[in-house]
Every structure is written in structure tokens, then in C-alpha cells.
Design a protein around this nucleic acid. Structure first.
Length: 428
RNA sequence: GUGGGCGUAGCUCAGUUGGCAGAGCUCCGGAUUGUGAUUCCGGCGGUCGUGGGUUCAAGCCCCAUCGUCCACCCCA
């Protein structure tokens, strides 16, 4: 009988990996909390319309990458391909952004029907941050500060760089789009197939084409920033000055345009060259028009999303992981014989009330030798050994596994005290 | 959707010109009746991705198909 396997592009995260995920999530959580951000949790499934109206009808995400299906009542539903739309919908629905500012974050799985490759999967995870009601470049700055702080905490700050751009107001963008289309139409013979297609669908995307010939052609194209409105340029200048005074290095990339239609003004990407083709680990920008576009009152907004799988890959390659992550447990109890095994259960339970170390009781039977081997493999720093002779004396043998200290016999009622006091056994 | 690489034990991989299906790691037992990380010995473990074809004979050659990885597109 054929074995059932996980769906293509949807991965199991195995026990070996989960400590890394927890570390990433906890690090992010504590930083966001320190900036006063609140978590929001929204459903994974939304009305299909929500994404069509927010992301943009002609984007690849909406055109060919959504997991869309009919509910039993005929309504079209979609597994969320990103988090911003749901967040805006929930805020609007519950009045969270009516006459008030919000600093929010969320995490969870997203779904896009694409061919999987390194750092890109059909079910992937994002940690997203959205802010509402704040117009100025100071909040843009704050978002970049907190991401920079996270990279430092994770030990990957040397592996990422910040790319920055402004897309201007929607009027300025529309004006530039016409200029660009006019220029490229004159040179249409030099465009590749993809770029020709984008000329009618999403011309600005041609700016960040990977094709060198197209990039060469763009050298002679109208200057994007020259077409932008004063207000946006002023905003952008202030953001740059803020980053400089705070010591956050950045690179202005006038070719950086984001794929989702709702972005305007500030856009940014944190990129790395350590992950192959999918080098963007965090990206976002301003979307001042989206709330109104979804039927709410006009509300300025700026946010970003991090790709959890990409950050995990980068952490594995470059990060500095706490030693604790490599260990399953701190204390391993090996009991031998029926009476000792029974005593070990109550002993272990009692210890869990008294000490905070992780404590694993071996229940797998097997020889004494194999128990010691398991104790070693588990990463535990101390083994507690309980056999017939110890049981008779009312003691356990405490064997340090990572230091050269002598094994000692400890009376049952003194174990917790010894484990709390003898920190030399537990030095990282 | 397009292009290329790879599918052999739980994992990492050998497998010669087509001639008995292999190693290391893991796991279990033993050398050492109760002391792990290094030794040594033994054991468990296989639909060679799947289906067809060629052949006396296919892991190997041919066709198809599925999976996977990387890249394009696109994106976190």
C-alpha cells in the first residue's frame, strides 16, 4: 500500500528543529513586547475577495498562487497568502483603528501555490508587524530599529543588509508609470518575454528584473525619484536622517519595488546573500491607502513581514544559538529494577516541584549500559542512578556527565538541595 | 507554468562492462552481572521511487510516470 506523504511544499517541522523555531519566536516576541506591540490572531481562511481587493487583481499571488476553494454554501474562501489583509480586516471589523493608533504583530502559516525551492514553500510561516494611524517617518524608523535589534539578538546582523526606497504617492507613481511605459514601448524589441508581459500588467516590476540586458536598458529610462512628489521625498529624507543618526546602515535602491499593489512611499527589504535565490528575509513598507481601499476610513499604515523559514536557514548558517537549544534535558534518571523504577517515578515527580531543571526519566527498559548511553546522548548534564543498593540505602548516585567531578551518593531528601546548589554541573 | 540535478536500509551514501543487495551512522545485545563520549564482536534493518520494455539475466540500458532539490517566474 502506498504510504501517504506530506503535501508538496508543506513541511513537517521535526523535533530536532522545533527548539530553533521556539528560539526565533521567543526572541521576536520579547523584542516586540519591549516596543509595546500587541499580538493579534486571525483565521487562516478568509473570504477570497479580501485578498483580491488588497493584494491586487493582476499580481501573481492573486492570479495563480492562491489556495482557493468553495465552502459548502458556495462562498469562495482562500487560505491566506499573507497576513496584512487579514489584520486590516480584523482591525476594521472590531474598531481597533478608529481614532486610535495600533502597534500589532502576528505569526502563523501562509499559503501560496508555487514551485518549492530553497527558502520558499507552499505552506510557509511569517512573523508580521503592522502599525496604524501614524503618518510620520518616525514610526518607519521604529520598525527598522526593532528589526535591526532582532538581527543583533539572533547573531545574524552581519549577514543582512537593509535596502530602502520610496515609491512616492499613488499620483506620482501613476505619472512615472506612464513615463516608464512610454520609454520601454519605444525599446520593446530589447525586452524579454517576462518584461513584455509586465509592461501591460505591472510595469514598475520591470525595474527589479534580474535580466542584465533589461537592467542595461533601464540605465536610459526616466528617473523614478525625479518624478516623485515633494511630500514623499521629504518623508524619505527624514527617514534616512533618522537611520543615520541612530547608526542603522542602509542602501538606497531606486529599483526596489514591492510586488503587492498596496505599497506606497517607504518600502524596504532586509536581504542576505547566504540563502541562494530567495535572499529577502524581511520586507515591508507603507500602505497608507489600504484601509480606505477595504472600506474603512483613510488611515496611514506601515508594516513588514519576516519569513520564518528563511530566518531559520540563516540562523543555522550564521546565528549564535544558546547552548541549551542543543540539549533535550538537564537531568537524566536511570533506574534499574522494578522497585527502583517505581521509586524513580515518585522521586522525579517530587523533584519537578522543587527544581526548574528539565528532568527526563528513562522508561525505555534496556540494559544499564544503554541507559547510560541514552543519558549521554540526551545532552543531560547530570545522571541520577537508582538501583537496588541505592534503594536500600535511601540514596541516589549523582553522576556528573560533563565535568570531571566525582560521582556522589545523595540521600533522597537532599537531592533537590544538591541540584540547586551545585551549579558547576550545569555551567553552559 | 519552464529548465536542470537527484531517487538504493530510519539517516548519509557506495554499487565497476548488465552477473548473489553493500558500507558508515543510528538502534539492540555482548566483551565488562551496575557506569556514557574512544575501542572490539554480533544482531535488527531492503517492493533498489512506481509502472512498463529490452535481455538467459536489470539497481545499472530504454520509455513513461511520481517524488525531491536547485534555478527561472514570483515572493517572506
Amino acid at each position: 500500500m502506498a504510504k501517504i506523504k506530506a503535501i508538496r511544499g508543506m513541511n513537517d517541522i521535526l523535533p530536532e528543529q522545533t527548539p530553533l523555531w521556539q528560539y526565533l519566536e521567543e526572541s521576536t516576541r520579547s523584542i516586540l513586547s519591549s516596543y509595546g506591540y500587541s499580538e493579534i490572531r486571525t483565521p487562516i481562511v478568509e473570504s477570497t475577495d479580501l485578498f483580491c481587493r488588497s493584494i491586487g487583481e493582476v499580481t501573481d499571488i492573486v492570479e495563480k498562487e492562491m489556495y482557493t476553494f468553495d465552502d459548502r454554501n458556495g462562498e469562495s474562501l482562500t487560505l491566506r497568502p499573507e497576513g496584512t489583509a487579514s489584520c486590516v480586516r480584523a482591525c476594521e471589523e472590531h474598531g481597533l483603528i478608529f481614532n486610535q493608533v495600533q502597534r500589532l504583530w502576528y505569526t502563523g502559516p501562509m499559503f501560496r501555490y508555487e514551485r518549492p525551492q530553497k527558502g520558499r514553500y507552499r505552506q510557509f510561516h511569517q512573523i508580521g508587524v503592522e502599525t496604524f494611524g501614524m503618518v510620520g517617518p518616525d514610526i518607519d524608523t521604529e520598525l527598522l530599529l526593532l528589526t535591526a535589534r532582532l538581527w543583533k539578538k539572533l547573531g545574524i546582523d552581519h549577514a543582512v543588509t537593509l535596502q530602502l526606497n520610496t515609491l512616492g504617492s499613488s499620483e506620482a507613481r501613476a505619472y512615472y508609470r506612464d513615463q516608464l511605459v512610454a520609454y520601454l514601448t519605444d525599446h520593446v524589441d530589447q525586452l524579454d518575454e517576462d518584461s513584455k508581459r509586465r509592461l501591460t500588467t505591472n510595469p514598475l516590476r520591470i525595474l527589479d528584473s534580474k535580466n542584465p540586458q533589461v537592467q542595461a536598458l533601464l540605465e536610459g529610462a526616466p528617473d523614478f525619484h525625479a518624478c516623485l512628489d515633494d511630500e514623499s521625498l521629504k518623508h524619505f529624507d527624514q527617514l534616512k536622517r533618522n537611520l543615520e543618526s541612530l547608526g542603522i546602515p542602509y542602501e538606497v535602491n531606486p529599483r526596489l519595488v514591492r510586488g503587492l499593489d498596496y505599497y506606497g512611499r517607504t518600502v524596504f527589504e532586509w536581504v542576505t546573500d547566504k540563502l541562494g535565490a530567495q535572499g529577502t528575509v524581511c520586507a515591508g513598507g507603507r500602505y497608507d491607502g489600504l484601509v480606505e481601499q477595504l472600506g474603512g476610513r483613510a488611515t496611514p499604515a506601515v508594516g513588514f513581514a519576516m519569513g520564518a523559514e528563511r530566518l531559520i536557514l540563516l540562523l543555522e548558517a550564521e546565528g549564535s544559538l544558546p547552548d541549551r537549544l542543543k540539549r533535550q534535558t538537564d537531568i537524566f534518571i536511570a533506574a534499574l529494577g522494578d522497585a527502583a523504577e517505581q521509586k524513580a517515578l515518585s522521586l522525579a515527580e517530587n523533584l519537578r516541584d522543587l527544581v526548574s531543571w528539565r528532568l527526563t526519566l528513562d522508561c525505555s527498559g534496556g540494559s544499564f549500559k544503554s541507559k547510560m548511553k541514552k543519558a549521554d546522548r540526551s545532552g543531560a548534564r547530570v545522571a541520577l542512578i537508582l538501583g537496588d543498593s541505592e534503594l536500600e540505602q535511601g540514596v541516589v548516585a549523582l553522576k556528573p556527565l560533563r565535568t570531571q567531578d566525582e560521582q556522589e551518593l545523595v540521600p533522597f531528601d537532599k537531592i533537590a538541595a544538591v541540584l540547586s546548589a551545585e551549579h558547576r554541573y550545569f555551567k553552559e
